[in-house]
């Protein structure tokens, strides 16, 4: 089967620190990583290839340095990778990003399955997956925690979706797009050989023209939303009261304070 996986390079939020004086993000020395949910997406594609045969195609749209996440994808065993990069994509919001990714997937052609992460940890929107599915005109299965069954002949897939109250078991026609949550698998580490191979690999860059994108639908021009202001969240009110003393005193004190809130019924 032919599987396309969309991955995004994001800043590692473990590194993100706030400047206590200016209350702004300190970006210096912040490394970039593959969006954690997307690692599960790659792994699931590799597992499916092991089971059903086929090819895993990994796509990222971003600036030239996003090539790093594609090298990782090659190192763990992706068959082909694509860097979708062009100045014309700058400022793309989720609508424009989903458009560009869907054009790339159409260019790859004939995919049975598209896998995305549940959301990217920089924007946390979870909109690109549904956007790509809608543009491609294929069904979407979001928050997938397990693939139960794939039948390529009958073009059917059965998955479990992790929702607020439990798991929904859904059958869908193929091709389809999945967004996956962390529970679905345990991503593998690259092998030494894989890393060596990836280091040498030539990674193709696709421009807006290469994927046949309509210039009115990409970049700022194709983005309906517009960030007008960025600011630091208000510091948490509530001062932070450390309860000191013997536990025999602290515990009833804490219980009093919590009972006073009237939230406990």
């Amino acid at each position: 089967m032919k599987i396309a996986v969309c991955i995004k390079q994001v800043p590692d939020t473990t590194d993100v620190k706030i400047d206590p004086k200016t209350n702004t993000l300190i970006r210096e020395g912040v490394t970039s990583i593959c969006n954690p949910f997307d690692e599960y997406a790659i792994e699931e594609a590799l597992l499916l290839r092991e089971k059903h045969g086929g090819e895993v195609h990994v796509i990222t749209m971003g600036p030239p340095q996003a090539i790093e996440v594609l090298k990782n994808a090659l190192a763990v065993g992706a068959d082909r990778v694509y860097l979708v990069s062009d100045k014309a994509f700058a400022g793309s919001d989720t609508l424009a990003t989903a458009y560009a990714l869907s054009k790339t997937i159409q260019k790859i052609g004939e995919v049975d399955l598209v896998i995305c992460g549940k959301q990217a940890i920089d924007g946390d929107t979870a909109q690109v997956g549904p956007g790509v599915a809608t543009r491609l005109g294929i069904p979407q299965l979001t928050y997938v925690s397990k693939i139960r069954e794939i039948n390529l002949e009958k073009k059917k897939i059965i998955v479990e979706r992790l929702l607020e109250h439990g798991r929904e078991v859904v059958e869908s026609s193929l091709p389809a797009l999945l967004t996956v949550v962390k529970d679905i698998n345990e991503p593998r580490l690259p092998s030494l050989l894989g890393i060596k191979k990836a280091a040498k690999a030539q990674i193709p860059t696709l421009t807006a023209k290469d994927i046949g994108a309509d210039e009115n639908r990409i970049g700022l021009k194709g983005s309906p939303t517009w960030v007008v202001k960025v600011f630091s969240p208000e510091a948490r009110g509530g001062s932070g009261e450390m309860l000191k003393g013997e536990l025999t005193e602290i515990v009833p004190l804490l219980v009093n304070k919590l009972m006073d809130t009237k939230f406990i019924k």
Partner: peptide, 23 residues
């Protein structure tokens, strides 16, 4: 911005080709 709402809104906004701000 529930699992249902986020699955749903993303599709509707894309079909209508309009903006959607998440969460």
């Amino acid at each position: 911005a529930t699992t249902q709402g986020r699955d749903f809104a993303g599709t509707v906004a894309t079909t209508l080709e309009t903006g959607l701000t998440a969460d």
